[in-house]
Amino acid sequence: MKIEINNLRFTYPTGLEALKGISLTINPGEQVAIVGQNGAGKTTLVRHFNGLLKPTSGAVSIGEWETTKYSTAKLASRVGYVFQNPDEQLFSRDVLTEVSFGPKNLGYEKSKVDELVKRAMALTELHDKTDTNPYDLSPTWRKMVALASIIAMDTPIIIFDEPTTGQDAVNVGRIANVIAELKREGKTVITITHDIDFCAENFERIIALAKGQVLLDGSARDILGQEEILAQTYVDPPQLTRLGKMLGLKEIVTRPEEFLKAIL
């Protein structure tokens, strides 16, 4: 499902203009990372995709639905949104109930709910934790429950807000696997992240925001080498990109395989 953003502007009631004219198209099945310093407008932008915020001017469409005409509860059938802090959404007594909450709200039949929940739990490696109370799990596993509870809604578009913050290497690996699997299924994945190495290794398209505007938009390789421009929004290029530059490699490298090929 296509996302179309046309000259989107948004001003908070406090008078702060957070988005200053953004136009973008995100095609079905794309893997997009949104980067930029705090206050650049990343969260404000993605909260327009499921109608939590409505444009001050301009328009956002999810497929043929214009977001101003639908409630967030309705848009939830098209756009799943994993909030940064799992503690802000978990409330059930066991993991199974928690993960079923979203698909039940969307009104799927029981057999479909069961199937979606099972798949989401397998994907997030939670299958042996169905009866556990989410609050007895470590913060890392609570994060996976939050992921599963959105994946089970089976929306064509999924948004992750800072999925790797506070996670250890093992769990970052798990989250990368989840994103790869969603990609295979043809879902659109949009991620806000500060972790530029994670970004380089898992996303094809990068959008850098600065002060409510699009600073850069393109393929990872085209964007991540532009050190001076990225510095405007306090983003450092990935470690291997910096290394490649220091070694004087001709092309921009972002991933280990590319780097190893390039130094041959």
Binding site: A169, V170, V172, D197, Q239, L240, L243, P256, L260
Partner: peptide, 20 residues
């Protein structure tokens, strides 16, 4: 053991295997 390590380390380890 599942610790976070720098990309420089992991990539150089791979490079070492290939003699780079």
């Amino acid at each position: 053991s599942g610790f976070g390590i720098s990309r420089y380390t992991s990539t150089a380890r791979e490079a070492k295997k290939r003699g780079l």
